[in-house]
């Protein structure tokens, strides 16, 4: 790719973000500092138009749990024969503003193929449960899980479903022989019930 072509891709990236209404796209390692920076960015943005405090809390909750899922579970993989392994996740926040009806938080990360059935089973289980069922599952996992569990006992996903009151919207994309790319899209409604 020539230099000009390369520079033009920046413009198309910019256009793409506008068209898809992405405010923030981050592809990389998720650290604690990153988590703090992104959540406070969203908070101050929402404060700027006095967003309802219950909605703000939900957005904050969902962002933290999504970021922690990425930092704990993004699988290291080799990208198209390149040297080195990448354990990057992609984290996207949809447009934040009072003209929007909802907030959107999307994550994507590589998952070892062998872990997919277990993850799928948990996602499906969560999606079959109603409010009361989710509450019971959360309590059960909290009692039985241990803090040192890498998985955090699946509390994060249950919490996201509870906080948003929506089914988990997910998809697995084939990457290579060993990995699948797990995408989770979360929406937080601005309509207070």
């Amino acid at each position: 790719m020539g230099n000009l072509e390369y520079l033009k891709t920046i413009y198309s990236l910019h256009e793409d973000m506008l068209a898809k209404k992405f405010t923030l796209v981050y592809d990389g390692e998720i650290t604690h500092q990153i988590t703090k920076a992104f959540t406070s960015l969203a908070e101050s943005k929402m404060n700027s138009y006095s967003e309802d405090s219950s909605v703000k809390r939900k957005v904050f909750h969902v962002m933290v749990e999504c970021l922690q899922n990425l930092s704990k579970h993004a699988e290291a993989y080799e990208y198209k024969g390149n040297k080195g392994r990448y354990s990057n996740g992609i984290f996207i926040v949809g447009k934040i503003g009072k003209e929007q009806n909802e907030y959107q938080v999307i994550t994507g990360n590589a998952v070892d193929k062998s872990r997919v059935p277990e993850l799928k089973a948990l996602l499906e289980k969560i999606n079959q449960l109603d409010k009361e069922g989710l509450k019971e599952l959360f309590k059960k996992q909290m009692r039985e899980g241990s803090v040192s569990d890498k998985g955090g006992a699946g509390l994060g996903l249950i919490d996201i479903a509870r906080k948003t009151g929506e089914k988990l919207d997910y998809h697995f994309v084939d990457m290579d022989e060993d990995n699948r790319f797990f995408i989770l899209r979360t929406k937080i409604s601005r309509n207070i019930d």
Binding site: H61, V64, E65, M142, V147, G152, A153, L155, I158, D159
Partner: peptide, 13 residues
Amino acid sequence: EYFNTASSKALLD
């Protein structure tokens, strides 16, 4: 004011 799910387990302990 706020605690994440990882903290919720510690609070239970």
